[in-house]
Write a protein that binds this DNA or RNA. Sequence first.
DNA 1: AGAATGTTGGAACGGTCGTTTCAAGATAGC
DNA 2: GCTATCTTGAAACGACCGTTCCAACATTCT
Lengths: 198, 198
Amino acid sequence: MPDIKHFDPDTILDTVVRLFWKQGAASTGIQDIVTATGLNRSSLYATFGNKQQLYMAALERYVSARSHPVLGRLTEDDRGLPAVVDFFDSLIDTRCSGEYARWGCMISNAHAGAENGDGDVRAVLDRQHHRLRDALHTALTTAQAKGQLAGNADPGTAAEVLALLAHGVNLRSRAGADAAELRRTVTAAIAGITGHAG
Amino acid sequence: MPDIKHFDPDTILDTVVRLFWKQGAASTGIQDIVTATGLNRSSLYATFGNKQQLYMAALERYVSARSHPVLGRLTEDDRGLPAVVDFFDSLIDTRCSGEYARWGCMISNAHAGAENGDGDVRAVLDRQHHRLRDALHTALTTAQAKGQLAGNADPGTAAEVLALLAHGVNLRSRAGADAAELRRTVTAAIAGITGHAG
DNA sequence: AGAATGTTGGAACGGTCGTTTCAAGATAGC
DNA sequence: GCTATCTTGAAACGACCGTTCCAACATTCT
């Protein structure tokens, strides 16, 4: 009997993600969202609840639409080390050029903001960090099986090192870090794991 | 002939630093600062100018009071690798326990926030990143001269790797990362440079 | 003591914040 | 076509935002 929504929530969320991703939660007002999405406050609140819940929904959307596909590809890539190299290459591409250049990573950004004070948000950050580390761990374990790693390398801690490094790349890219330099740095870090010269 | 200030600007700045450091610029209101410092809006604006200028002053204060001494110690430590190890040990201590636990690093935080949009702020971030990298570079060059590094290690790129890693440590500490795990990870990263098993 | 100068307290500014409310509009079933 | 149900537009809410203004105050010099 009722009327039906005149918009697609996921499409709207994609727009909201951009705002929160680029500017952060604290610097993004409801008015910004109303203007960018084109729908009004009533529909916004009726669909997503308050700002905090909307931010959470956007964060989950970012994870499922941006992070999950990339980590899935990394996890299922059975080439070992080249999978890791490609992951970082495309990470740096995304961070330094194209539509989302200099936006950093929404997850990394959320670490530094006040939004991190919320328990639900922090749970997402932890979960996502673990997923990244696990994906790297899988690829590095494969690499080790293929004899691509240094003899004393431990895939677990190496994965954690690279996960922290990814946060560093994300942060510095937001401040305008040079893509070539980031690539050189990541290459050197991976070389430290393989034991070979960069 | 005039009256004189009834407060010490640097002492006030220390209080302001805490607020901006912990909560970020966007989430810290002038009222928060008035309440925390005890002085009123007039004195605040007469001394520091507007909020943006106050944030810049706080950022510079953070650099000179927190970052500069630590980097100076690292630069002048001529032990080589142990200097780097100690640097990260005390970094993780600061980030995970004591008064500033879970606050992250004000510089790292500024990367992710909207405050980074300001050119003056970004200049500080770049300058500070380079200072950190240079300090690590100096220590690693000493380490290399002492034969503490792997044969194929390059102190320059290795310094950049560790600088990015520090950002990762800062970010993850804010989300409550375990100190012991961070230490283990950093140790592994350094082991990648030395070529020895962690 | 009195004049000059910068400081301080506090009210007030217009604007924006997140959120709520409610009447008007649109759709589905009868 | 009528009713029930949800959506939509727009106005309005109180609270807070960063900032400015000004009178009262304290200090130093003449």
